[in-house]
Nucleic acid binder design. Structure first.
Lengths: 187, 187
DNA sequence: TCTCCTATTGACCAAGCGGTCAACAGGCCG
DNA sequence: CGGCCTGTTGACCGCTTGGTCAATAGGAGA
C-alpha cells in the first residue's frame, strides 16, 4: 500500500480494509499508527536494500557493481520507493520512530555503497581517498535525482549519464568506462 | 506558516486564523487550496532564489560565488525551505498546479547555477565541458544532502566539505580552493 | 456441556479537512 | 433617506483521521 499510494496512505482504515478486518483491530495490535508507519518504512527499505545487495553480489567486479547500482537506482523502476523515502524525510520531523528508522536505513545504504567502493579500491580498479565520503556523495546525488524525478523533472536517461559521470570522477575512472560497462551488462 | 510547519499546514482554517478572518473567506478568495499551496510554494522558493541571487551578485568572482552558494545552501539556515521542497516533491504527485510550480522553480535554480558556472568558464577560472550538467549535478547533490539533514543525518560541516570537494572536481578546480575561498569570505 | 479467555467487532469520540450557502453588515450611490 | 452591492460571516455538509471501549463470537479446556 505504501508503495502504491505513499506512506500517508498507511492508515487504520486503509490497512483494515486491505486485510478485511475491523479498523479497531489494527489499532488494537499496533499501539500507534506512527509505529506502524515506521515499521512499514523499515520493511520496504530493508527489502529494497537486500534486493539490491543480492543484485550486486551476482555481478562480477566492482566496476560492474557501481554501474549496476546506478542503473538500478535511477532506472525509474523504483519511483515507488523514492516516494516512500521523500515522505519519510518529511514525516520524520513529526514521527521520531520514523526518523530513527530513516537514519538507520541511510546508514545501511551508505555502508553498502562504501563496501563496493572499498572493494574496488582494494582491487586497484578505483582510485579514491575517501570511500565513505564518495559513498555519501553518490547517495545524496541519487536521492536528489530521484526526488526530482518524482515531479517528472529531468530526463531519466540524462540522470543516469550524469550519475555515471559523477561516479567516474569520484572513483578515478576513465570517462565513459561506466557507460560501457552498463552497456556490456545490458547487452 | 509553510516555512514553520510545512506546506501541509497551509489550510483554510490555519490561514484564516493567522489572518484573523473567517475560514470561508479564504475559500472565497482562493478558489482551491491546491492553488494556494502552489502559490505559496512558488512565493517562498522565488524569494529564496532572489535572495541567493542577490547574495551571489555581491560577490567578487565566480569562485567566491560557488563557495558562497554551497555555504548558503548547506549552512543549515534554510532547513525550513528544504522542508517545503521535499513536501512539494511528494505533494506534487497529487497537485498538478504544485508540480508545475516545482518544475518551473527547478528550472530557475538550475539556470542560476549554470550562469555562475558559465561565467567562471568564460573567465577561465573553471574548466567544465558541460555547465548545464554540472549545475544539475550540484543541484541534485545539494537537494539530497539537505533532505538527509531533515532527519538530522550527516554532520553539517561534513556536508559542506563534501559539496565543496564535488564542486572542485566538477569545475576543474584545485583541491581545497573552495574551502580556502569560503574561509577568506567568512573571515 | 459449561466456562472462560482471547480475538474481534461496532459504535463511538474529538479533531481535522475542503467546500457551499444563505444571511448579514456597511459603505456608496441615487 | 432608501436601496443596492460588495465583503464577510456562521452554520453547515460530507468526509477523513487516530484512538477508546464495552460488548460479542468462538474455540480451548475442564
Amino acid at each position: 500500500m505504501a508503495l502504491e499510494e505513499g506512506l500517508q496512505s498507511v492508515t487504520q482504515r486503509a490497512v483494515a480494509g486491505q486485510a478485511s478486518i475491523a479498523p479497531a483491530l489494527v489499532a488494537h495490535y499496533v499501539g500507534s499508527m506512527d509505529e506502524l508507519v515506521a515499521e512499514t518504512f523499515e520493511a520496504i527499505v530493508g527489502d529494497e536494500l537486500d534486493e539490491v545487495a543480492a543484485l550486486l553480489e551476482a555481478m562480477p567486479d566492482p566496476l560492474a557493481r557501481i554501474a549496476g547500482l546506478i542503473e538500478t537506482l535511477l532506472g525509474g523502476s523504483r519511483h515507488d520507493v523514492t516516494l516512500v523515502w521523500v515522505q519519510a524525510w518529511s514525516a520524520g520531523r513529526r514521527n521520531e520512530a520514523l526518523a530513527d528508522a530513516v537514519r538507520r536505513q541511510m546508514d545501511n545504504w551508505q555502508a553498502l555503497i562504501r563496501d563496493v567502493i572499498d572493494e574496488g579500491v582494494e582491487a586497484s580498479v578505483f582510485r579514491c581517498d575517501d570511500p565513505a565520503g564518495a559513498a555519501w556523495h553518490l547517495l545524496a546525488m541519487v536521492d536528489g535525482l530521484n526526488a526530482h524525478a518524482l515531479v517528472r523533472w529531468g530526463a531519466p536517461a540524462a540522470q543516469e549519464t550524469a550519475a555515471r559521470r559523477a561516479a567516474e570522477a569520484l572513483l578515478g575512472l576513465d570517462a565513459g568506462s561506466l557507460a560501457r560497462t552498463a552497456e556490456a551488462g545490458t547487452g
